[in-house]
């Protein structure tokens, strides 16, 4: 009996270790979703926005920068998505790996309707916590209302790609 208990505990330990590895390893190797890391963002207007406070919402985090042309291409699509899917519980956050002085004019130019941050080091750390080990932009993560990462996308998304992704998870708006 003691031997059986030892075997069972060993299996549980191995399973737990494998699971932890899956959650911490680079995302491209992981076939499963993982709980989103606990990250906080300080928005341009100085407010702290914790990801945990958005539990119950679909959250789309789009890491971007003003020096990244594919990132700028996505901005109008993100603004439209926030308009169209906000009623279905979508909250978009735009952490910029950039300086506030560079980001601020973009808010006006693209009429950005979701919270944006400007923190190079903090954005880079958060992006890597979400599994982007290359550090390249743009990088987009979709988190479900229970706080699990359901999509990660490195590289620009067209308006159609974004629409397809949101429809797949949130349904038609």
């Amino acid at each position: 009996m003691r031997k059986l208990v030892a075997i069972v505990l060993s299996i549980a330990a191995i399973a737990g270790g494998a699971l932890l590895y899956q959650q911490l390893a680079p995302h491209s190797a992981s076939p499963m979703s993982a709980a989103a890391p606990a990250v906080n963002f300080v928005t341009l207007d100085g407010k702290t926005l914790s990801l945990a406070s958005l539990r119950g919402h679909w959250v789309l985090i789009n890491f971007w920068a003003s020096w990244c042309a594919p990132c700028i291409d996505e901005l109008p699509n993100l603004v439209r998505a926030q308009d169209e899917y906000g009623g279905l519980g979508l909250k978009i956050i735009g952490p910029a790996l950039d300086e506030a002085a560079q980001v601020q004019p973009m808010l006006t130019r693209f009429k950005i309707n979701y919270p944006v941050t400007a923190d190079f080091a903090g954005g880079d750390l958060a992006m890597r916590a979400f599994g982007n080990d290359k550090g390249a932009l743009p990088f987009t993560v979709l988190i479900d209302p229970d706080g699990f990462i359901v999509e990660r996308h490195l590289g620009g998304m067209s308006g159609e790609q974004l629409e397809t992704l949101l429809q797949r998870h949130l349904g038609a708006h």
Partner: peptide, 10 residues
Amino acid sequence: ARPFERPLEG
């Protein structure tokens, strides 16, 4: 964990 995360696309 949930077994439905999609791999990276594109």
